[in-house]
């Protein structure tokens, strides 16, 4: 409808939020915003504060300090929550209700419910509609929970580990639906521990550790914060010699391949090629999000 190129609006916001559980500081002056039309992935080790951050926006807990707003309203306001869809990690739903009844119930809460047929196709639950929820497998239940999250036209979708328990095919089908939703104009907040999921979907990543944001940006920029790169080749050079070279992080063997991690990939490669003329199958890879994530959270600790 509108030109999304230059109209970035913040839909939800945590400003300098603090939250303690007894003596444990869960969030320590956390800042976070959710913008229009983006897929925002929240990453962080267990206990870092991801779930706490999301719980604040979902009206599940209250902040001790700072400001929490959802569409410039308090998340307690019904009218704010009518603009979000929610998939929690561990909700057990009434087992004796049929899938269609659970969807009917959820849809009754929203002003703009989706067409049931369209919804069932998007969540791949068309064949499950008549079945009692309690009789479904874990993966099927997860798809139903996803359907309930997208049962209405909403502006932000909160998904907590949405693809846990799904097989690869179902996971990829959900990714397709998520991309479709974003194209419709919906924003998505994704907490996940599958880094490849964040890598495949997210426009923006926020890494949380020990209650505050330690890195924020595109997948690209997060990856580039970690300068480490990996060289792989078949070479007869001696490992212990290579270890003495400058800027070598680690050296090892992966099967017949020699692997080297280094910050200075150019110099190391030049030296490798000059010292071993028989070197073969040279490969240089940048750190993936997973490696970047490990590095970032290691720095923090």
């Amino acid at each position: 409808m509108c030109d999304s190129q230059n109209t970035i609006t913040t839909l939800a916001r945590l400003e300098n939020v603090g939250k303690r559980y007894g003596n444990v500081t869960a969030l320590n002056g956390l800042n976070l915003s959710v913008n229009t039309g983006e897929i925002l992935a929240l990453l962080g080790p267990n206990g870092a504060g991801k779930t706490t951050a999301v719980s604040l926006l979902l009206n599940l807990i209250e902040a001790d300090s700072g400001k929490v707003s959802l569409f410039d309203q308090d998340p307690q306001e019904l009218s704010a929550r009518q603009r979000i869809g929610v998939m929690l990690q561990s909700a057990e739903l009434p087992e004796t209700l049929r899938v269609s009844e659970l969807i009917e119930l959820t849809q009754s809460y929203y002003p703009l419910p989706r067409d049931l047929k369209e919804l069932a196709e998007m969540a791949a639950i068309t064949d499950l509609l008549k079945r009692p929820y309690g009789k479904l497998s874990g993966g099927q239940q997860r798809r139903v929970q996803f359907a309930m999250a997208i049962c209405a036209k909403v502006e932000i979708l909160f998904l907590d580990e949405p693809t846990v328990g799904l097989d690869i095919e179902a996971r990829e089908a959900m990714w397709v639906s998520l991309r479709k939703l974003v194209a419709e104009g919906c924003s998505i907040v994704l907490t996940t521990h599958y880094l490849e999921e964040a890598e495949a979907l997210a426009n923006r990543v926020i890494v949380i550790a020990q209650g505050s944001v330690i890195a924020e940006g595109s997948v690209e920029s997060i990856r580039s914060r970690v300068a480490m790169r990996r060289i792989r080749c078949v070479s007869s050079l001696n490992i212990t010699d290579i270890k003495q070279w400058p800027n070598i992080d680690s050296v090892g063997y992966d099967g017949e391949y020699l692997t080297i991690q280094t910050m200075d990939v150019e110099s190391v490669t030049r030296r490798l090629l000059s010292e071993d003329h028989a070197l073969q199958q040279l490969e240089i890879k940048r750190a993936g999000l997973a490696e970047a994530f490990v590095e970032l959270t290691k720095e923090q600790a």
Binding site: L60, Q82, V86, L88, L93, T106, Y109, Y110
Partner: peptide, 8 residues
């Protein structure tokens, strides 16, 4: 918990 998060 779910009911608190959605607009029930």
């Amino acid at each position: 918990k779910w009911r608190r998060a959605v607009p029930a």
